[in-house]
Design a protein around this nucleic acid. Sequence first.
DNA 1: TATGAATGAGTCAATATGACACAATAGTAA
DNA 2: TTACTATTGTGTCATATTGACTCATTCATA
Lengths: 258, 258
Amino acid sequence: MKQKENPLKDFLLKGHLRYMPGVSVDNVIFGFHENQLKVLLLQANTGKFWMLPGGFVQKNEHIDEAAARVLQTRTGLDNIFLQQFHTFGQPRRSSNKALIETFHSLEVPYDHDHWLLQRFVSIGYYALVEYEKVHPQPDELSRACTWHDLDKLPSLLLDHKEIIMKALEELRLRLNYQPVGYNLLPEQFTMKNLQSIYETLLDRELDRANFSRKILSFGILDRKRKHFTGGAHKAPFLYSFNQKKYFRALEKGLGRDF
Amino acid sequence: MKQKENPLKDFLLKGHLRYMPGVSVDNVIFGFHENQLKVLLLQANTGKFWMLPGGFVQKNEHIDEAAARVLQTRTGLDNIFLQQFHTFGQPRRSSNKALIETFHSLEVPYDHDHWLLQRFVSIGYYALVEYEKVHPQPDELSRACTWHDLDKLPSLLLDHKEIIMKALEELRLRLNYQPVGYNLLPEQFTMKNLQSIYETLLDRELDRANFSRKILSFGILDRKRKHFTGGAHKAPFLYSFNQKKYFRALEKGLGRDF
DNA sequence: TATGAATGAGTCAATATGACACAATAGTAA
DNA sequence: TTACTATTGTGTCATATTGACTCATTCATA
């Protein structure tokens, strides 16, 4: 029996049979830690640049499914609600220098028609995850899969920094008509937990009382018992998202102006 | 000198040299007529289905430019502000039956690897235009390029109906934080003109006084002289968009909740 | 000059927002 | 037990916004 090929080599040689040419997906995964917004990045075995967990679309696969599969494959994160937010299509998105080096080092024959050397359009998805709940694992092409502060991003591949910034911008816009937090918080949480998320996403402080009033007016929360932290102060109530109402609000929006 | 090829035949044979495989753009052009929202559709010479003015992305072209070029080429409409709103990527978007008939009728050789028979992802753009201002002309592939009522759409190709509906949905959402009307109205217009646009887009009536108050509060309008229509009633003021403020609002948004 | 239609401007109650105040805890220290 | 502190639930209050109206004005026509 033939020895297993190098998976990267296999991908370079046979990828064109499996994947759509010219189309990729890039996932911007936001996570929280100590009230800081983080983004999940991969670092390839072969390069020093960091990158978003992105990949390609199979020839017979919905792009939404592709985004989810790519995320699962490259980071191990599963069952994450991904939201498409923008498609990026500058003509020379990709620099092929590193790629061509890889061809040489793996002794893979190629020419300028090779599918990976073509220009790609990338469909951007974002998601919000609870930092503590997930355990990112790099795939075999990557040596690292770790969280990075948004204000201390390392050197990023191609236009991935632009993609991250656009994702954040769109996310902030949608905060006005979409609820947030479902998979960001444990089953039960305090109002302060939720407020911290909004404050972190918006990068500014919100008034405690007003925030509470507004969120409760959306009617997507159920109040539970009290939560005794052991802190020397009044115990806060716990809340949970009313799933039905939460997802209805995700679909229908939280009420409009016009 | 060789006779000019059939342009369609030329496109089928050589398109793969010029265009990205697997990626297309589709434009949803909304227009107004008698307070009705219309959408611009093409009908191919060879088929009975109507379609959005869509096309392909050149190998070295920004997707935004592709959308504008495609629109210009296929409908004659130029200098239109197109807004990307969603990318559609179900795996079997395209039915190739009609296409294969075309291959046969033009006696173009093909196999299942032909670039046009591959699965396509389509990037959706929308725009709003003043019905009276533009004069759509079908390209040589099409026998018609006409406006259609949204509530009386003809049979549409592929998923184009879904694309139109999504465009309208996104447009309505953006009405809450983006100004509308710049290229929809003449240089000067009445408050009623503008209100009609909003009413048509939202498909519901708005209170005259409240609408005026709200729009004026955005601070994107300059009041001009009065306009004497000849009607037997008080003459309305004319307004014009303050370009600087209008486009700043397009960029920055019209004020948020959180 | 009277009339009808549409407009600019205003009223007013209901609601939402932003900035605070204050009493009610839960633990800790005395 | 009792003070003390941090944090929370709730309330207030001025201000802004919204939705549903009214009303006088003004234009062309009869």
